[in-house]
């Protein structure tokens, strides 16, 4: 098949599958009694979990689906919350007619502000990146973003990250009647100063300076440990959430979706693994269809 024919065929296949999927999902959603959400949720959850065994077709399927669905999800969310509300709502605040179409963004309640043509133009310039011959014009939009961010953040960070933090660090270390409060303040001062000295690279970390910067490393390690602990706890709570879902999806009223999906998945992966046993040295080749 020539490349041009294959291009058209692939577009037709994608369009047909998309229309079919929309119809099937809409049917599933409208028929609550079949527990469609539990079946889909179980399939997707177990599909991603299957990666713990090895990279396999179920994981690849869910991973690719995740990319497509999340890209569209964010585009839709940002379009309706920013472009529709803040851009078009300000450019066309009253009901108007354009090329036979009725444009109505009056529900957002903004006043007309034609200065908002600037972000519209810069936004369109950003999309020019898709056309190589005029892609350079997207630099103008990027420059606006860089300049704005630099201007806003340089002062903002100076205030919040430097001034405020320094002010909160230097507290009294001797507090009559409360030894431990003073001690804690001392820990804070020593920790911040020593860790900052660790980041000072203009002088070699030797002698007294090296000792202080080593103390700084210890404080930094405790901070990283705390961040690590919170990261683990966050992930574990997500995992508990997914297990909770799978348990809820294992009831008879929905037809045991999580159990059926797990058994089927294990069976298919086992058959594929046995079929391809000894074929390749790479683990990825274990599940080649």
């Amino acid at each position: 098949m020539s490349k041009d024919v294959w291009t058209i065929v692939s577009i037709v296949i994608v369009a047909a599958l998309s229309a079919l999927s929309v119809a099937a999902i809409s049917w599933g959603i409208d028929n609550h009694e079949i527990g469609f959400g539990f079946w889909i949720g179980s399939l997707l959850t177990m599909g991603i979990m299957s990666y713990l065994y090895a990279d396999n077709p179920f994981y690849k399927f869910t991973e690719h689906l995740f990319v497509g669905v999340s890209a569209s999800y964010w585009i839709a969310t940002y379009y309706w919350t920013q472009i529709d509300t803040n851009l078009l709502g300000r450019l066309f605040p009253e009901k108007t007619s354009f090329l036979g179409m009725t444009i109505d963004f009056s529900r957002h309640g903004h006043e007309q502000n034609l200065w908002y043509l600037i972000p519209l133009v810069l936004g369109l310039f950003m999309l020019a990146r898709l056309i190589p011959s005029i892609g350079w014009i997207s630099r103008w939009s990027l420059s606006f973003v860089v300049g704005l961010y630099a201007g806003l953040r340089s002062y903002g960070y100076l205030q919040s990250n430097v001034m405020q933090q320094a002010k909160e660090t230097f507290r009294p270390i001797i507090i009559p009647g409360d030894f431990w409060a003073g001690f804690n303040h001392l820990v804070l001062v020593v920790g911040v100063v020593s860790a900052l000295l660790y980041f000072f690279f203009s002088k070699e970390h030797k002698g007294m300076f090296g000792t202080i910067s080593r103390v700084g490393i210890f404080f930094l390690m405790v901070s990283f440990g705390a961040a690590f602990g919170f990261a683990v706890m966050g992930r574990i709570s997500l995992l508990i959430g997914r297990f909770d879902f799978l348990i809820r999806a294992s009831t008879a009223e929905n037809g045991y979706p999580s159990i059926v999906v797990t058994v089927l998945m294990v069976a298919i992966l086992s058959i594929l693994a046995m079929k391809n046993k000894g074929k390749g040295e790479d683990e990825d080749e274990l599940f080649e269809p």
């Binding site: 990250n161 920790g191 860790a195 660790y198 980041f199 405790v222 901070s223 440990g225």
Partner: peptide
């Protein structure tokens, strides 16, 4: 205390770098 000390040094470093 120790965690805030380390985190604060990192924040100050980020602020100055920014």
């Amino acid at each position: 205390w120790p965690n805030v000390a380390g985190a604060r040094a990192i924040m100050i470093g980020i602020g100055l770098g920014m």
